[in-house]
Design a protein around this nucleic acid. Structure first.
Lengths: 344, 344
DNA sequence: ATGAAAGCGCTAACAG
DNA sequence: CTGTTAGCGCTTTCAT
């Protein structure tokens, strides 16, 4: 049975293995790194001892001299299925590689930099992040220290890679679709952020494209903003619906759009009264009970692609930056029916 | 502007700070650890230099001597909202503490131990995990090395804490509710696992309670199992519904229940034909389009509680184990209507 | 092919 | 109150 707890057992070190196997630490090190210069017999002996002692190298000690074999991923919000899809894509791409992924959840509001710093303090071999609210100057400096790929940033960085979808196209697809369905009074619900970075964030670009598409058709934009929370999206959506002035809402992303559907239902309305279109195509959007028209940006694929780019830097040694853009696609579902007569 | 990329800048070390400030490393160390024995002037000078050089201690070097100020969390599946709720609760509890949380996503099937090991290799100061598929002997050994709290394990461990909800009660609440609603032919859709551990996993216990509750009322159990995936749950749910032999399904958790709702809708049926009850009360369950009757086990609260238990060990030095049980509550919603006449 | 030794950046005794 | 010193467990030249 287990020993009395509290007496923390010390785990074996490389020295213990070396001693037990009657070889040098260097030999053990070579064996675990699959490095050259070890005879089959030695390898065998060492591996046997490692198994016997259940030895596992400590990452920290390893990091002091070499790599951590760790990829850090910063994710602003665990509750948004789009992000978890990206993680899933990344995770599956990493399978079979010696790299392990750790996720650092965001701290909300403008604290994205803190999370990136803490990942860097851990000396991950590379990182993937989704941090719209960090200045590109700051990121450029971080990118010089550590391989990095940023998702959803439209800046042409030189020290790190970016991976986005064509947000302008996606928003245009969404809005054009509503117009083609016959909608004239289309609102946009988006996430507010600071004036400074806003125009280059995904939401800022979608917003711009929404405005442009409407104006090109001579229609009037109606913009409402909310914070990045279910409650805020619900409230803003409800207000928009209750105004009775619109027949459709293009929402900044699916997670928020689903809150708008909630508000709609709470007002005893359906998407036949007010059409709703989202962005991301999270798995839930295809659920028949939700059936949300949306724009797919292929989250899983983006996650996998991000890992590819990162490994090109880490393993392949690439140092020039790449900027990949994924082409989004419209997913037509039941939430974007043709407009009913205006409520008032 | 940024330097040419590729020329990775070396980040300053404690030595650099000491040199620049004209003091010893020890002094710098004391300042960043807020340790005793530093004069205000020295503290001031060092802090100024730290800010100037933008110095941040490297976690790895720190770990070699002391703590990592990191809490590792193992989560089997990022896509399940219940788990992300637990994370959110944990994360909010950690705010303001010097500890940072990192999440290691599960690798699927029986590879839970691997993730725990890799967290331990990183020498996190403590860890929280949801690993039903790991033997308790193995966990006891790990618990002797590192403070640990396990969620959803019903074993009375001695080297680690456990935190569960009363799964037997929860399942009984769910099944009794269906019986009271008038259902007689109630199926159970659950997640299969190895014979060995199954009876002590949350799903095993819910299954047992389901059987017992039905039999106590003289009703016949109908059990279907699936794997931990949307597709598998969908298929199993669809088959159960198509059989036409049941009027209600108690599903092992909400994520799977939502797939059953999907199958139901795809068969052009509603919960008026086949009632559905889940487990967990994820945020989506309360969405009016879903309105899933379920059993709440207060995920956010559990996450926060897990951190509390862990900090008692890490900071407070507690070494005896605690085993907390949360009392679940039924959440009645529209998905558990009274039964319609049998289909065949 | 193998091992000895230096050192990564920090913390913790211990001296002064 | 401050600085010196000895490691923590690895990787990596560099001899042998």
């Amino acid at each position: 049975m287990a020993q009395p707890s509290g007496e923390a057992r010390r785990r074996p070190s490389m020295d213990d293995v070396a001693r037990a196997a009657g070889v040098s630490k260097a030999a053990v090190s070579k064996v675990i790194r699959h490095a050259y210069g070890v005879s089959p017999e030695m390898r065998d002996r060492v591996e046997r001892t490692i198994a016997e002692l259940e030895y596992r190298p400590r990452v920290a000690a390893r990091v002091m001299r070499g790599q951590s074999f760790t990829i850090g991923v910063e994710i602003p919000n665990l509750g948004n299925e789009f992000f978890t899809e990206v993680m899933a894509g990344a995770s599956s791409k990493l399978r079979g590689s010696p790299y392990q992924m750790i996720i650092a959840p965001g701290l909300g509001d403008g604290r994205g930099a803190q999370v990136l710093e803490s990942l860097s303090d851990r000396q991950v071999d590379g990182m993937i992040a989704i941090s719209p609210g960090v200045s590109s100057e700051w990121l450029e400096r971080l990118g010089e220290e550590i391989p990095m790929v940023m998702l959803g940033r439209h800046d042409r960085a030189i020290s790190y890679d970016t991976l986005t979808n064509d947000d302008a196209l996606g928003a245009e697809l969404a809005v054009s679709h509503l117009i083609e369905r016959g909608h004239q009074r289309i609102a946009h619900l988006t996430i507010s952020s600071d004036e400074e970075s806003w125009p280059r964030t995904p939401h800022g670009i979608r917003h711009r494209a929404y405005i442009d598409t409407l104006e090109a058709r001579g229609l009037t934009p109606v913009v409402s903003t909310c914070e990045y929370s279910s409650a805020s999206a619900y409230a803003a959506g409800r207000e928009l619906i209750a105004s009775g002035q619109i027949t459709a809402i293009f929402v900044g992303n699916d997670a928020l759009a689903i809150e708008v559907l909630r508000a709609l239902a709470d007002l005893d309305l359906t998407t036949d009264s007010v059409a709703v279109v989202g962005y991301d195509d999270i798995p839930l959007a295809s659920h028949p009970r939700i059936s949300l028209t949306t724009v797919s940006q292929f989250g899983r694929h983006m996650g996998a692609l991000a890992i590819e780019l990162l490994l090109e830097r880490i393993v392949g040694g690439r140092t020039d930056s790449r900027h990949e853009v994924v082409t989004p696609e419209l997913r037509m579902r039941a939430s974007s029916a043709a407009p009913a007569p205006l409520l008032n």
